[in-house]
Design a protein around this nucleic acid. Structure first.
Lengths: 167, 167
DNA sequence: ACAAGTTTTCAATATCTTTTGAAAGTATAG
DNA sequence: CTATACTTTCAAAAGATATTGAAAACTTGT
């Protein structure tokens, strides 16, 4: 396949994949274009290649910077900003995990805690509900603790350990 | 907190959580109501408690059955169908992983493969693109292989191994 | 075979999310 | 200080997604 065509396919692929996981299509596509650009890109470059508006580009680049997946870059003698994606995919994965944990898992854990014990005259039903919540809570906490450790480990160590485990 | 109130909060919580991860709100809410019901529920029950239409209820219950998270149940002397959720959350987690893998990760891996080698006169840029794709491909494959093993292991074994690893 | 109860489908509608683009805001050079 | 280059904001519009509800299809008992 030809390089330009392959890049376009990748932008598409990454966009679809993102939207299946609750990340908006444009944001994923901006990420894709930066991942596959050998040089940092300006807002104009991104607008042009993805055919999206200035506002849209600005907002999604900014969000990617919040996620720590994209850096601002200054180019000598250029007034406008350029953007460059983190290309170490292990880093990318860790940062996505970190961010989703912070934004979604932690609030979830907080709320589950509030539901752990309830009041009711119907003892059996009370117990049943509490069991379900406990069971969700245990799972979420375990996944959380794996993700904490994952973020400390380096790629080789992490996958090495996991793969060895199952041999 | 009072039981009924807690159930409502949970339905809400699960619905929000689902929609952040690309699962539609109603589907997650139907799942929540079944998870927290001590007895199987009919379509009518679900419609009434969630205040949603028959069509919506039917479609989402069916989707949950496709995901293997909900079972059809027959009640003696009743003509209509009842539904019951799988309550072992380790099982639930495994089934969600299995399904998302099948629907999303496998197609992704397929497409990445097609992008692994491209043609271009610009050797440096070709190399750069191929490196990025390779790096994504390696990560996805490793995550895939962990998830395969996870689905074979039982909960205790899995978490036991992971937790010990990081001690 | 019919009638009553139940489930499924799907076009129309409503809702929610994303995108646009022009205006306001900010920074920099001269 | 002022003009110009550039970035950010946000209300309105477009687009995507979810929901409704009534009709069609199916199922079961008599």
């Amino acid at each position: 396949m030809e390089l330009e065509q392959a890049k376009n396919q990748f932008i598409n692929l990454w966009g679809n994949f993102g939207s299946q996981w609750g990340i908006n299509r444009s944001m994923a596509q901006v990420h894709a274009i930066l991942l596959t650009s050998p040089t940092p890109l300006s807002t104009e470059d991104i607008m042009e290649k993805l055919q999206i508006s200035r506002g849209n580009t600005n907002m999604n680049v900014r969000e990617l910077i919040n996620w720590n997946l994209v850096y601002k870059e200054t180019v000598l003698g250029e007034r406008r900003e350029f953007f460059r994606a983190e290309k170490d995919m292990w880093e990318v994965a860790k940062r996505i995990v970190r961010e989703r944990k912070r934004r979604e898992i932690e609030p979830l854990m907080q709320h589950l805690n509030d539901l752990k014990t309830v009041e009711s005259d119907n003892l059996a039903e009370k117990q049943d509900f509490e069991n379900t919540i406990q069971s969700i809570d245990r799972l979420v906490n375990k996944l959380d603790s794996i993700s904490n450790n994952l973020m400390k480990a380096d790629e080789h160590a992490f996958f090495g350990m996991i793969v060895n485990l199952f041999k």
